[in-house]
């Protein structure tokens, strides 16, 4: 018994040596999860369709609102109407990706901690974050991605910009980085529920604040701008990366800061998550 605490430490180190094998294991598992998720979605086609159509309508109303707003405003503080549409579309694509693949994260408080489902997650020999995220994929949220993509391509054609393969590839990388930033922000916020019995109020405030990311940050005052850049990096989820295409020289640096911000914030988020799972106090029986 006294030796039990450290006897198996050697085994832990051995595991690190198999990092690549482990990665392949997770990728294979992810494929199995995805195929199951698609199968179960197909089983509930009607649910999927109604969710998808409802989401699409909501998005279209939002877009219609923005369009009608700008009918008489071809320019806003130095920004072309179409440029704003592009930024707006970019933010919708990265947000849509986040909602489609990571929405389950937002269920942590109610469905996992309060209902006690987190116990089950801790009983499987898998990373807890991986399990939570993959347990449900919200395919119907993909409507947001589609609307965002349409807005981006409409803006591009109106602006008369033709992109080459390299630009498309970079754009895809930036969209993924932006999605990772959303993921990091919301991971940190939901992790707080491990310590506090918050039922998602912070999360909903943050979801509302997300509206700021849809417009050029230069239209806001200095304080808001600083907050959106350095504290809650929403500016990196659409505005800065869009500058790759909208090409304002002064933002070149910020464009390529986007993946770095994504990487750093994601690492910080996972550290907070780990600390949170250690602080987890399961509910009573």
């Amino acid at each position: 018994m006294p030796s039990a605490d450290w006897r198996y430490r050697a085994g832990d180190n051995q595991k690190k040596g198999h990092a690549i094998k482990r990665l392949i294991f997770y990728i294979n598992l992810l494929r199995a999860y995805l195929s199951n998720s698609i199968k179960s979605r197909l089983a509930y086609r009607e649910d999927f369709l109604s969710g998808f159509v409802a989401g699409l309508m909501m998005q279209l109303i939002g877009v219609l609102f923005v369009f009608s707003l700008f009918v008489r405003v071809p320019h806003l503080m130095g920004w072309h109407r179409e440029e704003i549409f592009f930024i707006f579309g970019f933010s919708q694509v990265s947000l849509g990706l986040f909602f489609t693949f990571f929405s389950n994260l937002l269920e942590l408080s109610d469905k996992y901690i309060i209902e006690g489902n987190f116990d089950r997650i801790l009983l499987r020999p898998l990373d807890s974050f991986f399990q939570l995220v993959t347990e449900r994929i919200y395919w119907e949220e993909s409507s947001t991605i589609i609307v965002g993509l349409s807005m981006m391509s409409y803006a591009l054609s109106r602006l008369g910009l033709a992109l080459g393969p390299a630009e498309y590839l970079s754009l895809a990388g930036l969209v993924l980085s932006a999605c990772a930033i959303y993921l990091a922000i919301f991971t940190i916020l939901v992790s707080l529920t491990f310590w506090f019995n918050d039922r998602g109020s912070v999360v909903s405030v943050m979801l509302m604040l997300e509206g700021f990311s849809r417009y050029p940050v230069t239209i806001y005052n200095r304080t808001v701008r600083l907050v959106l850049t350095f504290i809650i990096p929403y500016a990196f989820t659409a505005f800065f990366p869009s500058m790759l295409i909208l090409g304002r020289e002064s933002y070149r640096l910020y464009v390529w800061l986007t993946p770095a911000v994504a990487a750093v914030s994601l690492m910080a988020a996972l550290a907070v998550w780990r600390a949170g799972t250690r602080a987890y106090q399961s509910t009573g029986s």
């Binding site: 039990a4 605490d5 198996y8 832990d12 801790l122």
Partner: peptide
């Protein structure tokens, strides 16, 4: 300890 493993410290090996 369960079979010499400390459950919360060696979670992966333990739950297997």
């Amino acid at each position: 300890a369960v079979r010499g493993l400390v459950p919360h410290r060696q979670r992966y090996q333990h739950v297997k």
